[in-house]
Write a protein that binds this DNA or RNA. Structure first.
Length: 749
DNA sequence: ACGCCAGGTATTTTT
DNA sequence: TACCTGGCGT
């Protein structure tokens, strides 16, 4: 322990050692905050004899949580699965799983993701006689989410509503909650809301957690919303053993309800707070740090502070203007290639940041063509693919849930001769008898409302569910998913048609199955509910795999907490960054500026900023001006700042695209989706593939290749476009096989 | 019952 | 450029 402490600077050490009351650590970017947190955990365990399981540590992202767990495990060997080191949502889920019955839920309650929630809200809008075209489901969902973040219940909202608008929203909110409760379901907002409600209304339960949690640590405190703030206040009320870490300059989640006042007022909220500032930056060059300060200093609502570093001044920031977004991507690509070929940096050292997910596309296209391996973080998520959502729906039902969204999904796919008409009838019976769907099926099958054919089909479905529920009691999770895939007819459905899209789907399901088996391994005592929670709460943006040598393409929001030697901040244009929707209100602009600060401070050695003069937006070219954030950086810290932007001549380059976006999509779906444990699926996708495109197919009839499973084989047929080849090979050992070249690493021999 | 196609529309950031 | 929806044809 002593040696460990000696490696910290004075402020860091003080932060680790102080354990006598509430502690606020103001930790600037790159000041070794995670290090302090993990050492503090270790210190509590070693020197204060606290059981590791009695420490609650909450973070915002799974990435941060798993990193912390990993670091704790490196210091002391404890099984990380049981540790209360979690995101807010996961920690609350754990509490709720221990007390579901108190809230009127059953042990089978499920989590709705955003799209489930949106779908249900749309239904509620219709049921409330509100036109979903006037009140957009998404907007209503946001309003409800906001209410939950502020701990406003549906009833409270209804009684507070003054305007017709508010009343409409409130009535939808009431119906939505009622339906959610009926379906035994919670959305993201409910998880926190219900945990707080539970602790507020049940002092004896709160007391049990007071006794349990000897110390509470909170990361990214500046991003807490009111509900999370209240949760912490409740849990810390008795012992006041709470340590929060944050940086007001890095608060970027106001849109999600984060309240920067939580950190600014921490000293008022808790008596006798000790505040420690970590101001030495160990990450970035002096130049980068100064540039970050030159941007952030324009904000009015912040505690003034300036980080310092002992690092070298480093190279100036390189600013570059291009004609359009395609040139921008090509510029980034050429810089990366140049650095890589010089042997100075590997691909994984590099990150490309952008403000919106939509900007990612062009980079993917150009990187794909240019043969630079990349990973995208975010964008279309693995778990939101239809086939995966279908499998999850089956899994929810098998686990015992009567969630109607899942039942409908599984009832309709694969096609089993039951359609909208039959389903409507069943649902009507369900409402009339106020019962669940399975009982409704029983009732309707005893009546004369349906033809014999439809009845038979429904009964078959019920039998399927019963079988799967029995299986769920005996099979392991991986085996259960496999059983579902086979027994539901889903596999048959997918294998019937061999279109490229379907091959993708088959692959995705196989990845999902592999993930389930892996979960089994990681969490030996986990059950199906835990696995479902895990899927719902662990977004794919977990962990960037360090040993994958790929460039990261990532939004600025997701980049928070990460660091890279080389960073490209792209789309530095007015309207993009700062975003057009956030340019006019002062508060929102300040948040954009903080986002910029976050972006700059991710860079360790070298920072690039690019902006295009013209950019296609909504399929229309629009002329762009460089971002005001570039102007904030003084000339001595940046080169290439253009006085005038280079406007594009309207030459069109569409014809040059050698592959369509559809190809790109397919490629991506297959290649770069992570499994639930942070590793990338499909490691098989190899660089040899990149090198071949786009100049003609590498696969020729008559050539021999080594297949990882089938051994040596000879190509008898090549179909499909370059990079998308469908090969027919003859293997002496395995016979003739059709193979999508990109799935498998084929070694010429 | 169910698949397909055309046409309209939406695009910030996420647990 | 995407997705979604609603209408139509099988």
């Amino acid at each position: 322990m002593k040696e460990l402490l000696s490696k910290l600077n004075d402020a860091q050490r003080e932060a680790v050692l102080y354990c006598d009351g509430p502690l606020l650590i103001l930790a600037g970017a790159g000041s070794g905050k995670t290090r302090v947190l993990t050492h503090k955990v270790l210190y509590l365990i070693k020197e204060h004899n606290i059981d590791p399981l009695d420490i609650l540590a909450v973070t915002f992202t799974n990435k941060a949580a798993s990193e912390m767990k990993e670091r704790i495990r490196a210091l002391i060997n404890v099984p990380t699965w049981d540790l209360w080191v979690n995101t807010f949502h996961a920690a609350c889920m754990r509490i709720l799983r221990e007390h579901y019955e108190t809230l009127g839920y059953t042990k089978n309650f499920v989590i709705y993701d955003d799209s489930d929630a949106k779908r249900l809200i749309k239904q509620c809008l219709i049921d409330c006689d509100i036109d979903p075209d006037q009140f957009k489901p998404k907007a209503v969902k946001n309003a409800i989410g906001r209410a939950k973040n502020n701990l406003i219940s549906a009833e409270k909202m209804q009684s507070n509503a003054m305007t017709i608008f508010d009343k409409s929203i409130a009535s939808v909110y009431v119906l939505y909650q009622k339906t959610m409760q009926q379906n035994d379901a919670m959305d993201f907002g409910d998880i926190i809301f219900n945990a707080v409600t539970l602790l507020q209304n049940h002092p004896e339960i709160l007391k049990s957690y007071h006794e349990k949690f000897k110390y509470i640590l909170v990361d990214e405190y500046q991003d807490t919303n009111h509900a999370q703030y209240t949760l912490l206040k409740l849990l810390a009320k008795k012992r006041k053993m709470i340590c929060v870490v944050g940086d007001d300059d890095q608060s970027i989640y106001k849109f999600r309800g984060a309240n920067i006042k939580n950190i600014l007022n921490f000293e008022k909220d808790y008596k006798g707070v000790t505040t420690i500032k970590l101001e030495q930056n160990y990450r970035s060059t002096k130049c980068i740090l100064d540039a970050a300060y030159s941007v952030i200093k324009h904000n009015r609502t912040r505690k003034d502070k300036k980080l310092f570093t002992e690092n070298a001044h480093g190279e100036k920031i390189k600013c570059h203007n291009t004609r359009d977004e395609i040139e921008e991507a090509r510029y980034v690509l050429s810089e990366i290639k140049w650095m890589n070929e010089g042997g100075k940096h590997s691909f994984k050292d590099v990150a490309v940041f952008f403000r919106t997910n939509a900007q990612c596309r062009v980079f993917e296209e150009e990187f794909f063509k240019g043969g630079i391996p990349y990973i995208t973080v975010g964008g279309i998520e693995f778990y939101s693919r239809a086939e995966i959502k279908d499998m999850i729906a089956y899994l929810k039902i098998a686990s015992g849930s009567n969630d109607i969204v899942s039942i409908k999904r599984s009832l309709l796919r694969p096609r089993r001769g039951i359609g909208k008409v039959t389903l409507d009838k069943v649902e009507k019976v369900m409402v009339e008898n106020s019962t669940d769907l399975f009982s409704a099926i029983d009732i309707i099958c005893d009546s004369s409302q349906l033809g014999a054919g439809a009845k038979k089909k429904l009964k078959e479905y019920v039998t399927l569910v019963e079988t799967l529920r029995d299986d769920a009691k005996t099979l392991s999770i991986g085996n259960l998913v496999t059983r579902i895939y086979n027994a539901s007819g889903y596999k048959e459905m997918l294998e019937k048609d061999t279109s490229d899209e379907n091959i993708d789907r088959i692959n995705n399901v196989n990845e999902f199955i592999a993930g389930a088996f892996q979960f089994e391994e990681n969490a030996p005592d986990g059950d199906v509910s835990m696995y479902l929670d895990f899927i719902a709460l662990v977004s794919s943006a977990d962990k960037l795999d360090g040993d994958d040598n790929k460039v990261s393409l990532i939004t600025l929001h997701k980049a928070k907490g990460l660091e890279y030697p080389i960073v490209f901040m792209t789309g530095m244009e007015e309207g993009i960054f700062p975003h057009a929707n956030s340019m006019h209100e002062k508060e929102e602009l300040e948040e954009e500026r903080r986002l910029c600060y976050v972006g700059i401070t991710r860079a360790k050695e070298k920072l690039f900023m690019t902006h295009a003069s013209s950019r296609r937006q909504y399929n229309m070219p629009s002329f762009q001006r460089p971002s005001r954030f570039i102007d904030d950086i003084p000339d001595e810290l940046i080169t290439g700042k253009s006085k005038k932007s280079v406007f594009a001549t309207a030459s069109v380059r569409q014809g040059q695209r050698s592959f369509t976006n559809k190809d790109r999509d397919k490629f991506n779906k297959r290649s770069f989706h992570e499994d639930p444990h942070g590793q990338k699926f499909q490691k098989k996708v190899v660089n040899t593939f990149f090198k071949e495109s786009p100049s003609g197919s590498a696969y020729k009839v008559g050539k021999s290749y080594l297949h990882p499973v089938f051994g040596k084989g000879k190509v008898t047929r090549v179909e499909g476009s370059t990079g998308n080849e469908k090969l027919t090979l003859f293997f002496p050992k395995a016979g003739e096989k059709k193979i999508m070249a990109k799935y498998v690493q084929l070694v010429p021999c």
